[in-house]
């Protein structure tokens, strides 16, 4: 890749412990990598971060959210200044806008739009941003928009904004076929397991070959980067055939999301990028229990 891509993720958390469990490693990793690191949050959160980070926190700039998130245009300008002022160092930001409960939707929408704009404006900045959303304080519509605007979402709890598509639903356990796997020698069994069921769902030969390639890639990633136990689960929902690879490893913020085209097969992110081309949809879901990558194929 010629220029480094933006990694813009969301954290949906419930309670201070979940908040710190995700953000402290994210910020500490930035300090260790020599990034210019910023934490923008309501005052009480900043205090908790400062305390949890200890000495690593000395090299972080803390900004009060109430002042930073006054108006979207100013916030975008300030982000732009941060990125330019520190170039060529990489900027890493943990941000959280307070979402007042009584705020009218039109006002909130200006900020959800701002999240989408960040993807365009800073696409080639190499910056890493994690935007935190308090599940208990933010309304469902804002959360839904947040899930759309970010390249990845870490969600410590159950998704409450179940969308119309079966792709976002949790299946009932009774409808799910599962196959545990533990080594690369079992990848062929993972393929057989998935294609036999996808074929019964009515996918044609070309789509089966695409799914077989995609699930092998995702399962291989789970072996390389994830932790045991690992398993593949399949089920169907109407027209959709769903295939999910789960492991118990910690999702690494900043791992390739595969949304931006790689320069070549030699770049990291090539695998997941290709997976996204081969199937109809990919959902990455991570929480403290592990990582699930869900592949969706429509008949």
């Amino acid at each position: 890749m010629t220029e480094p891509a933006l990694e813009h993720g969301a954290l949906v958390y419930g309670g201070l412990a979940e908040y710190l469990a995700a953000l402290v490693p994210f910020l500490r990793e930035g300090v260790e990598a020599g990034d210019a690191v910023f934490a923008v949050a309501p005052a009480a959160r900043l205090e908790a971060l400062r305390e949890a980070l200890g000495r690593a926190g000395d090299r972080i700039t803390y900004l009060e959210a109430e002042a930073f998130y006054r108006c979207p245009a100013q916030t975008l300008r300030d982000y732009d200044r941060l990125v330019r002022a520190h170039a060529p160092r990489r900027v890493r930001v943990a941000g959280e806008r307070p979402w007042p409960a009584e705020e009218p939707w039109a006002r909130a929408a200006e900020w959800t739009r701002c999240e989408s704009l960040i993807n365009t404006v800073f696409a080639r900045s190499g910056a890493r941003a994690m935007c935190a959303y308090d599940r208990d304080a933010v309304n469902a519509r804002v959360l839904r928009e947040a899930r759309r605007a970010h390249l990845w979402v870490i969600d410590g709890g159950a998704p409450e904004d179940v969308a119309a598509s079966g792709a976002d639903r949790r299946p009932s356990p009774l409808d799910v076929d599962r196959l545990p796997f533990e080594s690369a020698f079992e990848l062929y069994q993972v393929r057989r397991f998935v294609t036999a069921r996808a074929s019964r769902h009515g996918l044609d030969a070309a789509r089966l070959a695409a799914l077989e390639t995609a699930v092998t890639e995702v399962a291989t990633n789970a072996l390389k980067h994830g932790a045991a136990p690992r398993e593949v689960r399949v089920w169907s929902h109407g027209e959709e055939f769903l295939c999910e690879v789960g492991d118990h490893g910690r999702w690494r913020p900043g791992a390739p999301t595969g949304l931006l085209p790689p320069g070549s097969a030699l770049d990291s992110g090539f695998g997941l990028w290709t997976v996204r081309l081969l199937v109809d949809a990919v959902r990455v879901h991570a929480d403290r229990a592990g990582t699930r990558v869900r592949l969706v194929m429509r008949r």
Partner: peptide, 16 residues
């Protein structure tokens, strides 16, 4: 009958 994406990367790396 099957080639995975990692193998395509491996072949590309060998050529490079």
């Amino acid at each position: 009958e099957f080639i995975d994406l990692g193998a395509l990367g491996l072949l590309t790396a060998a050529a490079a």
